[in-house]
Design a protein around this nucleic acid. Sequence first.
DNA 1: TATGAATGAGGGTTCATTCAT
DNA 2: GATGAATGAACCCTCATTCAT
Lengths: 209, 209, 209, 209
Amino acid sequence: MPNNQVPSSIKDEALVWKRRNQMIKGAVALFKEKGFHKTTTREIAKASGFSIGTLYEYIRKKEDVLFLVCDSIYQRVKERMEASIDPNQTSVESLVEAIRSYFQLMDDMQDEVLVMYQEVKSLSKDAQDYVLQKERDMVAMLEQVIVNSVTEPISEADVTLIANNIFVQGQMWGFRRWILNRTFTLDSYIDRQTQLLLHGLSKEVKELS
Amino acid sequence: MPNNQVPSSIKDEALVWKRRNQMIKGAVALFKEKGFHKTTTREIAKASGFSIGTLYEYIRKKEDVLFLVCDSIYQRVKERMEASIDPNQTSVESLVEAIRSYFQLMDDMQDEVLVMYQEVKSLSKDAQDYVLQKERDMVAMLEQVIVNSVTEPISEADVTLIANNIFVQGQMWGFRRWILNRTFTLDSYIDRQTQLLLHGLSKEVKELS
Amino acid sequence: MPNNQVPSSIKDEALVWKRRNQMIKGAVALFKEKGFHKTTTREIAKASGFSIGTLYEYIRKKEDVLFLVCDSIYQRVKERMEASIDPNQTSVESLVEAIRSYFQLMDDMQDEVLVMYQEVKSLSKDAQDYVLQKERDMVAMLEQVIVNSVTEPISEADVTLIANNIFVQGQMWGFRRWILNRTFTLDSYIDRQTQLLLHGLSKEVKELS
Amino acid sequence: MPNNQVPSSIKDEALVWKRRNQMIKGAVALFKEKGFHKTTTREIAKASGFSIGTLYEYIRKKEDVLFLVCDSIYQRVKERMEASIDPNQTSVESLVEAIRSYFQLMDDMQDEVLVMYQEVKSLSKDAQDYVLQKERDMVAMLEQVIVNSVTEPISEADVTLIANNIFVQGQMWGFRRWILNRTFTLDSYIDRQTQLLLHGLSKEVKELS
DNA sequence: TATGAATGAGGGTTCATTCAT
DNA sequence: GATGAATGAACCCTCATTCAT
């Protein structure tokens, strides 16, 4: 059950799972506050509720903590996305609903997502690839929903672009919150972004022919 | 002329200006490659073409280098944005043109923007506020262009939202390039994003009434 | 029966004896490969076939393992030396035979001897004295054989010197093997060293009067 | 001039030479007292008369200190051996003189030699090879002297054996001093070993025909 | 003004040892 | 008797910063 890309000296898997969850929880808070590099392993251990020695029974390197954090985030995001998306539904409503779920999710997990986005580059190349793949999977889920929702054919490129836009707008709610929540609540943000996606500025601007 | 938020022991302002430009150029390359924290002051000095002792004649702390980098980026971005936006023009074309200029700019300065985007959080609170204010100024410029371009009234909230979307989509071209340039060239990216902004999916989906 | 200079929490002496033999066997291999300091107690436990907790039921400190190894080596060396030396025989043949036995022994136990030779200094002062005493005993055995073998009186100093030379030449076969076995087999080594001891270079050099 | 197998960040070669000599001197004393592994880098720095930071300006890893120590020992040994051996002299006296010089040398440098012999195995494989080569060179010097000294032909194997014996007996004076200097002074040790080498036990034993 | 040697606080990591189960 | 999770002192090494030249 625990991520086995990061080996542990502890044999009891349930314990590994439990301790690593303590670790992730403590680490997210610290990484958010001061960033990965300025957080010491001793602080992580303390925030996790055990000693530095114990910390290293469950990971090999400090970087492993960051990897576990990222992995756990994507795991949870994916689970929630899958739970809220119905692949059989094919009307535009399912897209609207998926966007709502995803933005809601980004709101719930803003700390984690913020941390992940600012610190992935601190991972090793391999770990980055692993995390990036998860991200690709997520975007692919959005692409699927988009394809299912349109009634008229739409180019692959546009599907990609829209999926990426939604993806980034979700993150934006997390890491540009300092400016956005002067103007929006989560609900109004979701609402306006959805409107904009569906209609653009078609009514507000007049283009030259 | 040189940024005086970062004091220097050297009196000759022209020299300070020159040396700091060397510094910024060297530092951007290093920060891009390995990030701010993993770059040492010695490496910055070497890449700048002078000794570690000299480096510290022109800054007080390592963080100052990052600050100078960020400041220089915004300075240059702002200059180019101002040069390419005509506040008197009020048709939708000016918005289209502003978007094109801005995306082009993000493409030209992708290294710098990537660095800034990933490392601002390493600045002190004060320095972050300073940089954030520059960012707000930039978004405000986009907002102005939007207001000038629409023919029908549009809510303030929507203006903010659209400006932020454009802003983030510009950055996205920089830091999600690894996925986007499988599908898009800069021109096609600009083109599709513009279309999407103006019309959304109005033709592709049929909404319930 | 088990060495009682190293106390154990386990009461069953036969078990202590058995476990410690497992330990010694595993430890010699590890010490030879990576040295005492670079071998961890966990590795010793694993190589011995039991857990780290169990290891510490049979010793007090890591150093005890080294002590047990050294003690066991001398024990076995002494037993074999005693078995092969006949104190009643008094011709030079008995010396020749003793040398042969001893060199053969050093060849058989080269791993163990190498380890002991390189790691004694890691023992505490007390333990070193204990081990050194065993070494003195061994040299004394050689001295006895020498005394029994000569037909003309020989100074005590020379007895000591020769005994030490033989002792060191035996070790030399173990730890300079990398150079010696380009030229010698064990048998030819024994043969030539014996010849040299008995006749020196008397025929090959001409001394000034 | 300073050993360039161990790179230093300091540019001034004379300074590197000076600081490394301080290091070697301090390190030998410590290594002799407590061994390489039990000596900390901070202790080495302190004994060398500078800070831990400065220490690491002149080496890369702790192991480098040990390497420098070993290298310096062989350098000095070689210089002194070369100075005292006259390759043109071809009588047995030159062998006797070479032995005397070498044993005297081992006496002078006993601390260093002891350290080297107990700690070489802590070096990396490469560094060990380098040091071993120096050792081979030294033995080769002894072999040359032997060849020059004999009046009757002597087998290559015997040359090798005698050279190794002398080599090891020299070391023995260093690391078995605790037992030898109950019986010998340096001079009497040299004298008896020389006699033994030249004549063996030919007068003291009677062999079966 | 420029240099680079010196400093030492502090960080990541290891591992002998303990002790509750 | 056996196990292995937990502990934390201690080690190696880095690097921002200073300052004498």
